[in-house]
Simulated assay, not measured.
Amino acid sequence: MRSTRPVIAAALAAGALTGALVATPAHAAEYASSLKIAGVQYDAPGRDNNSCTTGNTKAEFVTIKNFARTGTVNLKGYVVKDAAGNTFVFRYNHYLEPGDHVKLRGGRGTDSDGGNVAYRNNCNFLWNNDRDTVRLIKPTGAAADTHAYTKSANDRDGNGFITFHG
């Protein structure tokens, strides 16, 4: 009897390992891209006003981060899209070093690698204040990262900001 317990324990451990290995592909698929949506300021502070001169669309942004340990990523050709199909395409070189991020802001401004900012050059709000989906799409058309949110379920403190990949 004693000799069968280690065999049973080993079989159970192998089964648990197999279960863990089976679960890995779904997790790995989510992280197939080193670029992730780190967070979204979907509701700009203050009263919504999409005027290019006096509005607050610059305060609405999505943060994209390079979670890779090595390897710089050029955002040129990447697309940010909402549930309604509104899109922004990074048309110029914007490099993210490992661990670096960029805030894609509404409104007009000058893109800056050093300042970690890019502007949509559009003064309309992109993200809905009640619910929306934020998509990051690779230049190939494949999904890099996607997050749906609702204000009631995801913004517990009500500040209009949601963190995704901490």
Rank of each mutant, 00 (worst) to 15 (best):
residue 19 G to N: 03
residue 20 A to Y: 13
residue 22 V to Y: 06
residue 22 V to W: 05
residue 22 V to M: 13
residue 24 T to A: 14
residue 25 P to C: 08
residue 25 P to K: 07
residue 25 P to E: 02
residue 26 A to R: 13
residue 28 A to R: 13
residue 29 A to S: 14
residue 35 L to R: 04
residue 36 K to S: 11
residue 37 I to M: 04
residue 40 V to F: 07
residue 41 Q to C: 05
residue 42 Y to P: 08
residue 43 D to S: 14
residue 43 D to C: 06
residue 44 A to T: 07
residue 45 P to D: 09
residue 45 P to M: 06
residue 45 P to K: 03
residue 45 P to A: 11
residue 46 G to V: 01
residue 46 G to F: 02
residue 46 G to N: 01
residue 47 R to K: 12
residue 50 N to R: 01
residue 52 C to Y: 00
residue 53 T to Q: 13
residue 55 G to V: 04
residue 58 K to V: 11
residue 59 A to P: 00
residue 61 F to W: 14
residue 61 F to C: 04
residue 64 I to A: 03
residue 65 K to N: 06
residue 66 N to C: 09
residue 70 T to R: 12
residue 71 G to I: 04
residue 71 G to M: 07
residue 73 V to I: 13
residue 73 V to M: 03
residue 76 K to I: 10
residue 77 G to Q: 02
residue 78 Y to P: 09
residue 79 V to I: 15
residue 82 D to S: 10
residue 82 D to I: 05
residue 85 G to N: 01
residue 87 T to M: 11
residue 94 H to I: 06
residue 94 H to S: 09
residue 95 Y to I: 12
residue 97 E to A: 14
residue 100 D to Q: 12
residue 100 D to N: 13
residue 100 D to Y: 08
residue 100 D to M: 15
residue 102 V to N: 02
residue 102 V to R: 04
residue 103 K to F: 04
residue 105 R to K: 13
residue 105 R to G: 02
residue 106 G to L: 07
residue 107 G to P: 03
residue 110 T to K: 11
residue 111 D to A: 13
residue 116 N to A: 14
residue 118 A to K: 00
residue 120 R to K: 07
residue 120 R to Y: 03
residue 121 N to Q: 11
residue 121 N to K: 12
residue 122 N to R: 12
residue 123 C to D: 04
residue 124 N to Q: 15
residue 126 L to K: 13
residue 129 N to D: 12
residue 129 N to P: 03
residue 130 D to W: 00
residue 131 R to N: 15
residue 131 R to M: 14
residue 132 D to K: 08
residue 133 T to G: 00
residue 133 T to Y: 00
residue 133 T to R: 08
residue 135 R to D: 02
residue 136 L to T: 03
residue 138 K to W: 09
residue 142 A to Y: 09
